[in-house]
């Protein structure tokens, strides 16, 4: 009886080791990468036909998107669900493979000064996993509110009422170049002049595309503005804002920092070792 129990434990252990190795196998990596390539190819074709189905995802969040747009358009969304599954498989594979290598390095007891450099590539792998997890959390937990338009002189109070944004006017930077004649004189950088009141602090700020403001835990993004060319825009003068709260942003930012650290150790470590 005791022998049988010991046998079962040994058998379970063998199975666990096999499963662990299979999950970290390079063959699985190749298979998943191949499937991912095929799936993304299909995704490219699907997006060409149905971009508008996916555009609301960043605003409504992944769960609500799956329940609404995804469920209502299964033919166009299947590749996306498959992509999630394949990315998860790739993540598990990377985690197992990297951990196995890290354990192997640690068990060889390298000199402590060499250790960071030997671990550098694996640090980058872990960083990619953190970044992926961060983006998943972001799509699961972030709240986004779109369509806040402000004309010069108007204000927007952020949810909770603790902070307020005031839009003054533009200080635009124009494109001057005859190479693209049709766009000569267009605004290349709107420089929307704002003032921010957050608690007792009151300070000026400038808002541009890809240069959001961070106020009281909210990201303020510029989504549109008029006029695109001084004197045009049919007399309209406004900015349109997206107010986004993303508590998981710190996760992928941390992942990026870890990646940069790993890359730095990998690139400069060789010189250091010499």
């Amino acid at each position: 009886m005791a022998q049988s129990a010991a046998y079962r434990v040994a058998r379970m252990r063998t199975l666990a080791i096999r499963l662990w190795r299979a999950l970290g196998s390079i063959r699985l990596t190749v298979a998943v990468c191949f499937l991912l390539t095929v799936d993304l190819g299909l995704g490219y074709l699907s997006l060409r036909e149905s971009l508008e189905i996916f555009a609301p995802m960043s605003n409504v969040g992944l769960i609500e998107w799956v329940q609404t747009y995804g469920a209502a358009n299964p033919a166009h969304a299947t590749w996306f669900f498959a992509m999630l599954a394949l990315l998860a498989a790739l993540s598990v594979n990377t985690l197992v493979c990297t951990t196995e290598r890290v354990v192997r390095i640690l068990t060889t007891r390298p000199a402590w000064r060499e250790l960071p450099f030997r671990l550098a590539p694996h640090l980058m792998h872990y960083a990619v996993l953190i970044i992926l997890a961060g983006y998943l959390c972001s799509y699961l937990f972030a709240a986004s509110d779109t369509g806040h338009a402000l004309r010069p002189g108007e204000s927007l109070t952020l949810p909770g009422g603790r902070a307020e944004l005031h839009f003054h006017d533009f200080s635009p930077e124009l494109l001057h170049g005859k190479r693209i004649d049709a766009f000569d004189g267009y605004v290349i950088k709107p420089n929307a002049r704002m003032s921010v009141r957050s608690g007792v602090n009151d300070y000026p700020a400038t808002l541009n595309f890809n240069a959001p403001l961070h106020v009281d835990g909210y990201g303020i993004y510029l989504s549109d503005f008029q006029p695109r060319k001084p004197g045009r825009g049919m007399g309209r003068n406004y900015i349109s804002l997206i107010v986004r709260r993303d508590p998981s942003a710190i996760v992928y930012q941390l992942g990026m920092a870890v990646f940069i650290l790993g890359l730095g150790l990998y690139v400069f470590g060789r010189n250091f070792k010499r």
């Binding site: 499963l19 299979a22 298979a31 998943v32 769960i63 799956v66 669900f81 599954a85 998860a88 498989a89």
Partner: peptide, 20 residues
């Protein structure tokens, strides 16, 4: 390996379904 990949996929699809 094939079985493991299938199991992973099924697990993830299940997780996604569980979310709903």
């Amino acid at each position: 390996i094939g079985a493991a990949a299938l199991a992973t996929t099924a697990l993830l699809l299940g997780t996604l379904a569980a979310c709903q």
